[in-house]
Nucleic acid binder design. Structure first.
Lengths: 242, 242
DNA sequence: CGAGGTCTTGAAGACGATCAACAAACGTGG
DNA sequence: CCACGTTTGTTGATCGTCTTCAAGACCTCG
């Protein structure tokens, strides 16, 4: 259940047995959340952090006038609000985009762990920095890619990240979000998301049904999206086309 | 010279005398850079990190086709590439936007420091998380604000951050960038930047000459930009464990 | 005082939003 | 298993914002 998380954590140098055991022991029993449930509210000051075990959730910044922007999407194995451990007040909310399974750790426990095991602290820091790098990539996506490229980039990123933690099924993966939800991610109207999906299908790049995405032409997608996965800090991902 | 940095660092709980002395001792002598010089190249694997002492620099993500996007602007006291300390390969370049004064620390020294002083590690981690929160704010700005609001938000953010480290002169501050440069930040063409600046002036919100910005109507700017500075984490964070 | 960079303004065009209507899929209860 | 209501997906038409192209004015610094 914690495998995806441990895999990500190991990327920055595998934790020792003691470190791993101490960390896992600190987690509270898992909970299950419905799609749409709020995990953390903007401006709150949480005393625990949340690890996502299954499903998708997102970070939502709300503006004064009620407009909202998703700033990140998280999947199984992601520490959804580790930054809350070092930051004081939350600058955004965290919401479940699909039904989710989560486990939490008290900040007091994290504090003890990180002061006892400096290398563990560094590994956790690393995870938050990958999030930051992903933010930067999204910034360039919003700034420099048109709607079609954004759609292709999302598919590339999701496939790569899911594949990394073993959550793909060949060239397929499950992505149970509505087109309106995708619009929140890509910052497009739901009407335009529909046209983008239609176009990606028409180009023979993906098969994107209600809840599943299948990669049909990985090189084509990568080229269209100008996908360059350095920012994800993964080991080289095997080419799904072979 | 290090005051702005120390002020930011202290926000997460002031470092002890020993911590502060050890940290400052690790910096190499300062260097001066010209506007346009590259501090770090995308995809490199640096062995030191850079602290900005004066001037402005930015983080630049380059796409395969040569398009570029500024993903962050840094000012005096900002640790420009602290994330390179925990991340492997750089996912972006760092360039001087104006002439800059910098100081560097070897990663090996940082590693020793953070393993000796876990609380110092936490303070540095905090700084990188403020950067991440700022990325999120920019994401919502690109996604949900129109050109005029983006301009107003940039002015609000710059004023607030510069004021925090004592680099404002009353309602004025120095911002020696061309309108084309501002366009790179706001993700607007230089033509449209010009129209935004003109509009902000016409509304009596700012006086924005070649190299200086003066705030004329702060409440008006804040309202237009929907500026909500929680993400900058300028309130001191209570640290119960100290 | 000349030259190159920067700022300013106009006009045309592209991209995506919004509005509106309808079709298809889902799920819930009878 | 079907009926019906709700959510989600699909398509067309119009509109607004920002881009691009083009040209001229203004600095600033050699």
């Amino acid at each position: 259940m914690f495998e995806p998380f441990l895999k990500k954590l190991s990327r920055h140098g595998p934790p020792s047995q003691a470190e791993q055991a101490a960390l896992l022991a600190a987690f509270a029993p898992t909970r299950t959340l419905q799609a749409g449930e709020e995990i953390l509210r903007q401006f709150s000051e949480p005393s625990e952090s949340t690890l996502l075990l299954s499903g998708f959730c997102g970070r939502l910044v709300s503006l004064v006038d009620g407009a909202q922007q998703l700033t990140a999407v998280h999947l199984a194995g992601d520490f959804v609000d580790l930054h809350a451990f070092v930051l004081g007040r939350m600058d955004h909310s965290v919401v479940a985009l699909t039904s989710c399974q989560i486990a939490t750790v008290a900040h007091s426990a994290l504090r003890n762990l990180t002061e006892t095991y400096p290398r563990l602290a560094r590994s956790l820091w690393f995870l938050t920095m990958v999030d930051a790098a992903t933010h930067r990539q999204w910034l360039t996506t919003l700034g420099r890619r048109d709607a079609l490229q954004r759609g292709a980039h999302l598919v590339c990123e999701l496939y790569t990240r899911l594949n990394d933690v073993g959550l793909t099924d060949g060239q397929k993966f499950s992505f149970p979000m509505t087109q309106a939800g995708v619009g929140d991610i890509l910052c497009l109207s739901k009407v335009h998301v529909n046209r983008v999906v239609k176009d990606l299908r028409a180009r023979g790049l993906v098969a994107w049904s209600r809840r599943d995405i299948e990669i049909l032409d990985w090189p084509g997608l990568v080229k269209l999206a100008e996908f360059e996965p350095t920012y994800l800090q993964l080991e080289p991902v095997p080419d799904p086309a072979r």
